[in-house]
Simulated assay, not measured.
Amino acid sequence: MASSADITVAVVAGEVSGDMLAGRLLAGLRPHLPEARFHGIGGPRMAEQGFVSDVPMDTLTVRGLFEIIPRYREIKGIQNALRDRLIAERPNVFIGADYPGFNLGLEQQLREAGIPTMHFVSPQIWAWRGGRIKKIQKAVSHMLVIFPFEEEIYKQAGVPVTYVGHPLAEMIPMEPDTAAARRALGIRESARVVTVMPGSRMGELKYLAAPFVAAVSLLAKRDPGLRFVVPMAGERQRQYFNQLVSEAGLSNVQIDLVDGQSHTAIAAADAVLVASGTATLEVALFKKPMVIAYKVMRASWEIMRHMGYQPWIGLPNILAREFLVPEFLQNAATPQALADAVWKQLEDVPGRLKLVQRFTDMHHSLLRNSAEEGAAAVMRVIQSSKAP
Rank of each mutant, 00 (worst) to 15 (best):
E170G: 14
H363I: 10
L185V: 12
E74W: 10
A333W: 00
I133L: 13
T195H: 10
V62S: 08
V356M: 12
F212Q: 05
R37D: 07
V9W: 01
Q261E: 11
L250C: 08
A269P: 02
A181P: 06
E372R: 14
I7Q: 02
V274Y: 01
P335S: 08
A293D: 02
A27M: 04
V140G: 00
A339S: 10
L26W: 07
E372A: 15
D259R: 05
G40A: 09
V213P: 06
L273P: 00
I318C: 01
S365H: 05
R73I: 05
T280Q: 05
V145Q: 02
R236A: 12
E204F: 03
F241Y: 12
K155H: 15
A267G: 04
A113Y: 08
L86P: 02
P173C: 13
A5F: 13
H39K: 12
A139N: 02
R298T: 08
V194K: 08
V55Q: 15
N331Q: 12
M197D: 02
W126M: 10
A113R: 13
W312H: 12
S141A: 09
Q254P: 02
Q79H: 10
Q108D: 13
V296C: 09
L319T: 00
I7F: 07
Q124D: 15
Q237Y: 03
F147H: 00
A81M: 14
H364T: 13
G40S: 09
R380S: 11
Q156L: 07
G40T: 11
Q49I: 10
T278N: 03
F38I: 09
Q383F: 14
E373C: 07
E282N: 06
P44L: 15
G351H: 06
R227Q: 11
F359D: 05
L208Y: 04
E372V: 11
E151L: 04
W126G: 09
E235H: 15
H166F: 06
T280I: 05
A210Q: 14
M307P: 06
A81K: 11
S246L: 14
L208E: 03
I255R: 01
E189D: 13
A269T: 04
M304D: 01
V349N: 06
V291C: 05
A279K: 03
Y154M: 02
V62A: 10
Q310M: 15
R238N: 07
R298A: 07
A375M: 14
L319Q: 03
A337I: 01
